[in-house]
Design a binder for these strands. Structure first.
Length: 680
RNA sequence: GCCCCAGUAGCUCAGCGGAUAGAGCAACCGCCUUCUAAGCGGUAGGCCGUAGGUUCGAUUCCUACCUGGGGUACCA
């Protein structure tokens, strides 16, 4: 760019540009700029070299390569690393003079955590660590979803169907509640699911039109014949390829015998189909399987409307703070919290402040009232909402309309978040408030922020949504109903047992307890690395097999480099303290290329921490630490430390380099919340 | 419809307007009497989604389009 300007000025001064079109000017400048930049680089290089501050300065291809005095620079660097130890790379605490609150790991009680939550925890922990290390005063917080529709549903299901059951002992009680929540959804959504199945069949199954007659005939022949109008309804929908609704039936329970008889048709379809056509066979089988699953609970059908009423009534029990219900809530909440604590501990999530939805509910309700009173919110179709675009005077739809309470007066997520956002600034004197929540909520958080602005809350703009894409499975979107969303606990267990196998195979002489500890560190590290080594705006396709791979670009590769470094130091019989003490007499003369590459990478760490913090991208640290491990492995193969024939001075220098590498690797991994074992 | 995100090697992903676009996995060929082979070296593999624009220079910035994903008033 500079060279371009210079060339242009030169040509201008020479008068060479006179009368030329813009395009011709460009062409001329273009022709000369390459040479000019090389010339410029060479002249600059000369000038830099003349300062005598660098060991070598070379101009190459328009770039300037500067060489340092290796011995002095290395000594200084290694000293810095060893003196600072676990804080190498960190800025002085609070040196940024900026206080930030990071909210993450908003797990729910009464519900099982899945791999998507795992990404949140890993990201939140890493972002907090990095923020802290970069010198931002960081308050770690979480916001537990201990009330809301999921809790109500779970407890409704508990009271209605499982009240007399003994919940399992110990930590699986939380998981048990999670299963109840899934069951509640299946029950309440049952009619929808059945109708969806029927309507897909009507739309996609060409054979149904022919087969329907027999099904309907059998419907006449049951002991308790169904209404003729309903049979006509079914026939009409099928022949016209139109969707059925529950309301379309005179007697909605007609669906029960109809759905049962449909099984005969589907079973026959599997047999009749051309067996050569594997795709059609697979589809027919899949349909039959889905039918079987739904049919297993066909007796649910008549009850669904009543259940829906019961769910509403359960909401009201909470709203009215019914003592028995509140007690049940409190007890079951405790079961889940025990489990959440374990997860947090295992994944290194520590919090300075704990929030939960139940504690901000009243504040939120109060705020909603005020918003209505002040005319910022209004009742639209019986629903309290803020018409944000209208209030901001925006022509184009941008922030749309946000409900701030349910029409029955119960609170929504938004009700509570408005209150919480305000509380954070009022009680903790922060400069910035960050939500680590997946990207699907970005409109939601924009809405919250804008409503706070309309409310007159000055700090609203200091809210920041740190979004990240969600986690899917190789097969497609996860659906908890189909049960193919891997639960956090399952992923954790599978990875740990897999890691244990590898450790036992690779390091059979290690004591069993050590093997288990190492396997644990490796497994958790592997999971975390997968979650952090992709940019936030990339969807992670979570392949359990790949997460379990311990080779290549993954945490174990880095941990292995660290363990190797530890091993060398152990065999060399030196500690960090010894190396530091000997530094005065350590000289780094004529290092090989692998050593220089390693040194360069170590020295880049502090800057990388700053960058990761300011961009809020732990990815920079995962990349950094992988590159560092790679360079160490290169060094390991090319530059022997303890082997015979290595000059004692070289050995001393290399031991120092290995120590600095070990410290930096451990520090980098620590920022990611990954443990660096000393042996593997 | 409107808004957001992604599209780079067979797959998963890096790539701070600049040098010959890089890793890992998978494939193929090598390296353990040596500080741990969870490692290292090599081979092969690319219209950087498409078309314009800005720039001396674009994978990178802008616009449009294509493809995929997500969001879009009483889910969280």
């Amino acid at each position: 760019m500079v060279a371009g300007d210079i060339v242009q000025q030169q040509l201008d001064a020479e008068g060479a540009l006179e009368g030329l079109s813009k395009k011709e000017t460009k062409k001329l400048v273009n022709e000369r700029v390459g040479a000019a930049s090389q010339d410029l680089a060479a002249r600059l290089a000369d000038r830099i070299a003349s300062t005598g501050r660098f060991a070598s300065v070379e101009a190459e291809n328009g770039y300037i390569n500067i060489g340092y005095d290796v011995d002095a620079t290395t000594n200084r660097l290694v000293r810095e690393v060893l003196e600072q130890g676990a804080t190498y790379g960190h800025a002085a605490p609070d040196s940024q003079n900026f206080k930030v609150m990071i909210e993450h790991s908003q797990l729910n009680t009464h519900k099982a955590a899945h791999v998507g939550h795992l990404r949140n925890i890993c990201l939140g922990v890493a972002l907090s660590n990095i923020s802290d290390a970069a010198g931002y005063s960081t308050i770690r917080t979480t916001y537990i979803g201990d009330i809301g529709r999921h809790v109500i549903r779970c407890l409704w299901c508990y009271k209605a169907f499982h009240a007399d059951e003994e919940p399992p002992a110990g930590h699986s009680r939380g998981r048990w509640l999670g299963e109840l929540y899934v069951e509640s959804g299946n029950r309440l959504r049952y009619r929808e699911d059945v109708l969806k199945f029927l309507n897909t069949l009507i739309k996609e199954d060409a054979g149904l039109q022919e087969g329907i007659d027999r099904v309907l005939k059998n419907l006449w022949n049951t002991d308790d014949p169904v209404d003729g109008e309903d049979i006509a309804y079914i026939l009409g929908r099928v022949t016209n390829g139109e969707e059925m609704t529950a309301e379309g039936f005179v007697d909605t329970d007609t669906v029960v015998p109809f759905f049962t008889l449909l099984g005969d048709y589907l079973r026959a379809a599997v047999v009749q189909i051309d067996q050569e056509n594997t795709e059609a066979v697979a589809q027919a089988n899949a349909r039959l399987e889905e039918w079987q699953q739904l049919h297993a609970t066909i007796d649910w059908w008549p009850h669904v409307p009543r259940w829906t009423e019961e769910e509403k009534a359960t909401f009201q029990l909470w709203e009215q703070q019914d003592p028995a219900f509140v007690e049940l809530w409190h007890t079951t909440r405790g079961w889940s919290m025990d489990e959440l604590q374990e997860i947090f501990e295992e994944f290194g999530a520590e919090f300075d402040v704990w929030f939960s939805e139940s504690e901000v509910e009243e504040d939120g309700r109060e705020m909603a009232r005020e918003l209505l009173q002040r005319g910022i919110a209004e009742i639209s179709d019986g629903l309290p909402v803020v018409k944000i675009d209208e209030k901001l005077g925006l022509e184009q739809e941008t922030y749309r309309t946000m409900p701030i309470l349910r029409s029955d007066g119960s609170t929504l997520y938004s009700t509570k978040d408005l209150a919480l956002a305000r509380r954070k600034f009022e009680n903790y004197d922060i400069d910035q408030s960050i939500w680590v929540v997946d990207v699907r909520q970005s409109l939601y958080f924009d809405q919250i922020t804008k409503i706070l602005e309309l409310y007159g809350f000055d700090e609203a703009e200091a809210n920041l949504h740190e979004g990240y894409e969600f986690v899917t499975l190789p097969g497609g979107i996860m659906s908890s109903r189909k049960g193919n969303a891997p639960l956090l606990e399952d992923v954790r267990n599978a990875t740990i047992s897999r890691a244990l196998n590898v450790v036992q195979e690779k390091n059979p002489t290690l004591a069993a307890a050590e093997q288990e500890q190492v396997a644990h560190d490796i497994a958790i590290g592997a999971i975390k690395y997968v979650m952090l080594a992709r940019d936030g705006n990339k969807v992670i396709v979570f392949d359990p097999d790949e997460a379990l791979s311990f080779e290549g670009h993954a945490a174990p590769y880095i941990q292995y480099a660290h363990a190797r470094a530890c091993r060398i130091l152990e065999r060399g019989g030196v500690t960090d303290v010894d190396v530091l003490a000997a530094l005065e007499s350590t000289s780094f003369v004529k290092p090989v290329a692998e050593e220089l590459n390693l040194l360069q990478q170590i020295s880049a760490f502090p800057e990388m921490v700053q960058r990761a913090a300011s961009e809020r991208r732990p990815l920079h640290i995962t990349n950094y630490v992988f590159e560092l491990a790679k360079r160490f492995n290169d060094f390991y193969h090319e530059a022997p430390v303890l082997q015979e024939g290595v000059d004692p001075a070289v050995r001393q220098a290399r031991l120092a380099l290995v120590t600095a590498t070990k410290v930096t690797l451990a520090n980098g991994l620590a920022l990611l919340g990954i443990v660096a074992p000393e042996q593997m």
